[in-house]
Every structure is written in C-alpha cells, then in structure tokens.
Design a protein around this nucleic acid. Structure first.
Length: 569
RNA sequence: UGGGGAGUAGCCAAGUGGUAAGGCAGCAGGUUUUGAUCCUGCGUAUCGAGGGUUCGAAUCCUUCCUCCCCAACCA
C-alpha cells in the first residue's frame, strides 16, 4: 500500500505563513527562519501546547529553518527540573528535533548587563514603592497612573542601587527595577513595568547565584533577540505586550546587544477543545483533588495523558494541521481530534478480537475436544498478514450482541437468528439459558460446519457478524473504557453560583473484566490494536505478566447506536 | 467616556472589489465476513447589523452591536 500517508492536500497559507513568506521575499532575515517553543517548566504540556509546538516546528521545517526549545525559567519559586524532563520527552515524542536547547536562565548575566545599560541610559530606575503602592500608583483602566516618587532618581544612583540589589543588600520585595516608559499610557503594560524583583530562592539551574530575577516581559524578548529568533509566536493574550516587547529591544540604540533585524512577536488564538479544560491550573486541580490519577491519566488532555491513552504523534500533528491557525477565539469540537486519531489508527492498527462483557455460547453440535484452526487477516488490507485463531465448542460473544426480544433492524444474535462469528463460521441460536434472577447467562447454538471460514456455501445471506473469542483459548484482561471527563461542552461556561467541577463526568472511567484472544498475550505496553467492532485499544503501562491492562483509545463510530437511540425515543 | 483584538453554516476555516474553498459534525444512499473503513449525494451561510462608495462589496468608507484579553514583584 503506497497511500498510507498521502501528501497533505495543498492548503492556503495561514496568516503567519504569509508573514514569513513576505519576510523571505524581502530577505528581511536573509532567508533565515528561527522560531522557538518557550514553555515555563512549571507543569506538564497539554494538547494546546502541542498546537503551538506543531506551529513553531512546522513553520521552521516548511521554510528550512530551525526551532529552539527554550525553557522560560525566570521564576524559581514555581519551576522544577521534573517538568523540564517531561517537556523534552513530549516534544520529542511528537516527532520534533530542536535546533538548540536553551534556558532563559542561560541569559541571566546578559539580561543583567542590558538592564544596567538601560539604567545608565536613563530608561530604567530602581523603585522603593511597596507592592501595594505600585499597584495603587499604576491606576486602572479608567484612571491614568501617576509617577513613582523614585522615578527621577539619577542614573548614577539607580546604577548603584541596582548593583546593591544584585549584591543582596536589600530584603526580598524591598526594591524593584522598573522600565521608565509612560504612567499615563492606555496600555497598562507600559505604565513603568517591572523588570527585576529581589527573590532569595534556589533556582533549579543557577542555584543561589542570583538574588534578583527578571520578569517575563523583559526576559522574553531579550532572550529571543539573543538567540536571533526571527518570528516569536505566542498566544493572543500577549497582544498588548507587543509594544513592550518592542520597546525593550529598541532601547539598544547603539546596537551593542542584539543582532538585527530584531525578532517580531506574532500572536495566534490558543486551542480550546469541547468537553475539556486546558489551563495548567485546572489540570493541576484535577490531579490534586483526585478526579484523575495523575498527569498522565488517559482522560487528561496532557500530552503524556494522550500518549498513555493511545493517541499517536501523527494523529496529533494532523489535528494541529486541520484545526488551523487564526486570531479568532475558538472552541474546537473534540470530534475533530477523534477523527484524526481514527484516521491514523484505521490504517495502522492490527485487528484483534476481544469481548468486553462476555456471554457464553455453547455450540451444541461441536464435540468438546474439537478444535478448528483458522487463519484470519490482521487487517482489511491483506498486506498486514494473518494470524492463527482457534474455534472450539465454547466461545464468548459480546453481551450486547444478543437480544432476546430484538428491536427492528437488529441483525445481531437473537433466538432463532443466525449470525457469523467473524472469520469462523455461522451459528444459529437455539436456546437461551437464564439464571435464577432471569438473566441470560448462556446461549445454546448450532453451527454450520460447511461455513467454516465464515461463508455459507449455499450463498444464504447473513447480515450480522460478531466478534468472539474461544473460551478454551481466551486470556483474561482488564479493559479500561474512557469517556469524556466533562459532560458540558464548555466546562468553563458555568452558570451563576456554579463551579466548573460540577460538570465532571462521574462515568468517565469504566473497567471491564474482558476476554481477549490468545495472540494478545505477547503484546507490550504501548502496542495498539483495533478490537474488532469495538474500537482502538492500547496496552497500558499497568500491564503485568498474566494481568494485562488495555485502554480504550477511542471507540469506532457506531451508527447502530444512533439508530437504536432514536428508535428508543 | 482606557488600551488591544475578533466577528464567514452546529464547530473550525479559506477568501485580500468580480459574484462564498475545504475539513469536522449531521443527513440520505451504495459497497462490506467490523452496523467500522471506503464511495456517492445533500447546506440557499441575511459573510454581526445599518448606511455609503462602485457597473459590481465578505472584501473599501462609515456608524453601531456582540464577544475575548489587559489593572501578579506569573508566564
């Protein structure tokens, strides 16, 4: 098969590609495209980050450039190496290689040097106002701010004070370094934003070398400029930080610090998904409050969660491509994600049989010791080969595939009905055995030996084909079925007095004691399969010898479920 | 009575003055040893609204409406 990965259809350029192409056409960066993915190592990456990763790396790949992985570690009180490792692993797993691995903390000295320069040129000053006073002086949306009384300190005094801040002569919070811009600006970001704060805290990389730490607005653009980033892509909420981003870089009037041209910040709309929460804070709460087991719980939208669930990197990349890049706030239907997943797995996942809720079927006209070896295809596409399966007198079928009183259009098993056991034979239900409670516990069927292989030689039509496993050969396995974590399309859209947690789905996890075909005994954690007629599953990391655990990655589309639901009103 | 963005079908999203791509979802058929896949067909989208310019406007001008972001020593 040659069209497993068809070339992506030609697609019109999105607005960032247009900007890059225009820059390429004008030779602005001499044909260079260098982007960066700048996570703060304070949490796990989620699918929203995956969109950003695909955008940044995809752009660079498309135009022959590179992407730096830069950890934005300017706040030592919140960051940790634990997250650095997971971020690296996730980006790699998604299939991307970074040009360089950097840390904002690599630039602490350069950041400090440039800050001294800004102090010396009168563009920054040391302010003694308290946190509350700074807030008060800043004003609000309707009232302009007022100048700090320390705003007029001389460059000499500021330089001395700034050096003493660095040397540890002041208490945490006693002083800050501020950019001298415009306390009257309508853009709050320009009302003399903070550049440095004093914080005696162990940094995960620089230890206790530094007592002062730069803030995002100052550190980010400068880090971009130091690395020679051409296009600095971020999300919409940073749109009104852009004047500040540019201001900091443009104060390098003599060109002593940064190469030209300077990087350009471009903002796009972050990803939102239906039935999902995406903020790090909410995800952390889900973990801490025990609504899920951990960051890699298969119900989590984290990259590690999706990975454990069985998502493929290809499907995530395809999703990022299809969801588009624009500036409009959007809420993408999670069905699109599931579509790109199925699209990939349909082509690649070997087929196997497993029964989630086993119902015993005894084939009365087969001898107890009778065994029929069957060679069945691993996939509708013969290129995937075949495997061997045994049929014997007792088999399990799916509990849902039998109805004593079948609804209209039912073509599964029912008293007197004939169905096909996939890849095996035709059976007809003759008798229904119930327990004392009246529940169906066993079916007595007769098989047509002439149909071995699955076809009736006389050409009679059998609509229903069921998956099954041989009781004598089946393995026990735990199968975990996942459903959406929330029952509301937008969990964040809470009614008055409500909480986003109110829409948590109590049935997001269902565990089944399943029977699976023997060949699955050799499967290793991470292996993916399609369980015929059920969905795509993968072997979970919890699997132990003799105790297999499967996750349902995603169910197959089920048009019968719709018909059935409609007929039931 | 601040600043910055955005409004094209249920959800994304092309379109850049010449008469509304595509995908997802949905619906209807066909094929089928997975009710899967695959194939075919199906949408009159008041292009947020009004006014204007023009032979012609989703695209230009104008007024208005709606939604999102910003007042951490977070990023």
């Amino acid at each position: 098969m040659t069209d497993v990965n068809p070339a992506p259809e030609p697609r019109s350029l999105h607005f960032i590609e247009e900007i890059v192409e225009a820059d390429l056409a004008s030779a602005k960066h001499a044909g260079r495209v260098l982007t960066r993915f700048p996570p703060e190592p304070n949490g796990y990456l989620h699918i929203g980050h995956a969109k950003s990763i695909c955008l940044n790396f995809g752009l660079a790949m498309r135009y022959g450039g590179g992407t730096n992985l830069r950890f934005d570690d300017t706040n030592p009180t919140k960051e940790d190496v634990e997250y650095v490792d997971s971020i690296r692993e996730d980006v790699e797993w998604l299939g991307f290689k970074w040009a360089g691995e950097f840390y904002a903390s690599d630039y602490f000295q350069k950041l400090y040097d440039y800050a001294e320069y800004l102090v010396q040129t009168g563009k920054a000053y040391v302010c003694d106002l308290s946190e509350a006073e700074i807030r008060e002086y800043r004003g609000n949306f309707h009232a302009p701010g007022k100048d700090s009384p320390f705003r007029t300190r001389s460059p000499e005094e500021n330089l001395e004070l700034f050096r003493r801040m660095k040397a540890g002569e002041f208490e945490d919070g006693a002083k800050v370094l501020r950019a001298k811009i415009d306390m009257q600006s309508g853009n709050m970001n320009l009302r003399d934003p903070l550049m440095y704060r004093i914080r005696r805290s162990q940094h995960h990389r620089t230890g206790d070398d530094w007592l002062i730490y730069p803030l995002y607005d100052y550190a980010h653009g400068v880090s971009d400029a130091i690395e020679g980033i051409s296009h600095s892509i971020c999300t919409l909420e940073f749109e009104d930080h852009r004047p500040l981003y540019e201001w900091f870089l443009e104060q390098d009037l003599e060109g002593k610090f940064f190469q030209r041209p300077l990087p350009r910040q471009i903002e796009f709309a972050r990803l939102n998904l239906t039935y999902t929460v995406m903020s790090k804070r909410r995800l952390l709460e889900l973990v801490n409050e025990g609504h899920v087991k951990h960051w890699d719980d298969p119900r989590m939208p984290t990259i590690c969660g999706l990975r454990r669930r069985g998502y493929t990197p290809e499907s995530l990349r395809a999703f990022a491509e299809r969801v588009g890049v624009a500036k409009r706030d959007s809420l993408t239907d999670v069905a699109l994600l599931e579509h790109t997943l199925r699209e990939d797995l349909e082509q690649t996942a070997p087929r196997r049989m497993a029964v989630l809720r086993p119902l015993k079927v005894v084939i009365t006209n087969m001898a107890p010791a009778e065994r029929h070896e069957l060679e069945v295809p691993n996939h509708p596409d013969p290129l995937h080969g075949t495997r061997s399966l045994f049929l014997s007198r007792e088999v399990f079928i799916e509990g849902e595939d039998f109805e004593e009183v079948p609804p209209k259009k039912w073509f599964r098993l029912a008293p007197g009905a004939e169905v096909r056991l996939k890849g095996a034979c035709l059976i007809r239900c003759d008798e229904v055995i119930k327990n004392a409670a009246g529940e169906v516990v066993e079916l007595r069927c007769a098989w047509d030996p002439a149909s071995l292989g699955g076809d009736a030689p006389d050409g009679r039509k059998v609509r229903g084909t069921l998956h099954w496993v041989s009781a004598a050969h089946a393995l026990n396995a735990e199968v975990r079925l996942y459903d959406r974590l929330f029952t509301a399309a937008n969990p964040m859209d809470v009614p008055e007095g409500g909480d986003w947690r109110d829409t948590l789905n109590p049935d997001s996890l269902t565990v089944c004691a399943a029977k699976v075909e023997a060949s699955l005994g050799a499967a290793k954690p991470g292996d993916r399969f399609q369980f015929e007629r059920l969905g795509y599953f993968c072997v979970d990391a919890d699997t132990r010898p003799g105790a297999m655990v499967f996750n349902r990655t995603v169910a197959l589309k089920d048009s019968w479920a719709k018909v059935d639901a409609q007929s039931k009103g």
